[in-house]
Design a protein around this nucleic acid. Structure first.
Length: 238
DNA sequence: AAAATCTACAACCGCACCAGT
DNA sequence: TACTGGTGCGGTTGTAGATTT
């Protein structure tokens, strides 16, 4: 039987106090990150190591960018989610100063609902059939789907108000895709995205490690190529 | 003004992965 | 090769504050 990551008894849970934050900051400033398991004891914190790590990474790290997401950040998140799915850490890696937790929360509380309102299934980035077909007076979907710009105009495009998040979820679960054939067929040929993957701060690699990394890049590129064939939201960024 | 409901986000939990033995 | 411990990740929960009824 595997030991739990930390002793449950005697450890604090829930919101962090100012004093706890300060202790953690002071300790990491003095000793650096690493060995989260032993850190709480060494820093005089009655917390689980995992909890300390999370607090540091998501909140206390000095390079964290707080505050609202910019429009371009939001666009990038949607774009990357269409390519990578729920790999929040990968997505956050492309947004300087943002954490995976923050990106995940923002997706769930803002972007997801926005996409649903537009009639786009946030899970697979496909258009849902419950949204009225394009017509001159209620043309949100077609406007978005054919736009050559970004997602910036999405909010102006919600003509039929949806009252609650519950309704949004309900609509999402009821909806089925109508464009599967289109997206897997001819329309996917129109996608012309730059698939270059830039790895942040690439380390100097030698020999085996470099080969491993290259192999990984190809795997990811292949995966992205597959996703592309099914993600109409990507067309929004052309 | 009070109660009910919703929203945003910090934090927790369990699992998977990886390196060391 | 199997096992173990440490760490990271994604899903989920809890809750304070805001908004609506």
């Amino acid at each position: 039987m595997r030991k739990p990551c930390c002793e449950k008894e005697g450890t604090n849970k829930g919101a962090w106090s100012k004093q706890e934050d300060q202790k953690l900051i002071d300790y990491i400033k003095a000793h650096g990150e690493g060995c989260w398991r032993s850190l709480p004891k060494a820093a005089g914190l009655h917390r689980c190591g995992k909890s300390c790590r999370l607090r540091w990474i998501n909140y206390l790290r000095p390079d964290i960018k707080r505050g609202n997401f910019e429009q371009d950040e939001e666009d990038l998140i949607i774009k990357l989610h269409a390519l990578l799915g729920n790999r929040w850490s990968l997505i956050a890696g492309r947004l300087p100063g943002r954490t995976d937790n923050e990106v995940k929360n923002y997706w769930n509380s803002h972007i997801r609902k926005k996409l649903i309102k537009m009639g786009i299934d946030p899970n697979n980035h496909r258009l849902n059939q419950i949204i009225p077909r394009p017509n001159p007076q209620n043309d949100c979907v077609s406007a978005a789907a054919t736009s050559s710009g970004s997602m910036s105009n999405i909010s102006a495009c919600t003509k039929a108000p949806i009252k609650s998040s519950r309704e949004i979820d309900q609509r999402a679960s009821q909806a089925t895709s109508v464009l599967e054939d289109e997206t897997s067929g001819s329309s996917s040929r129109d996608l012309n995205l730059d698939l270059t993957i830039a790895f942040p701060n690439p380390p100097l690699l030698v020999g085996e490690e470099m080969q491993k990394n290259i192999k990984g890049s190809f795997t990811m590129a292949r995966e992205i190529e597959t996703n592309l064939q099914h993600s109409p939201t990507l067309a929004l960024f052309r």
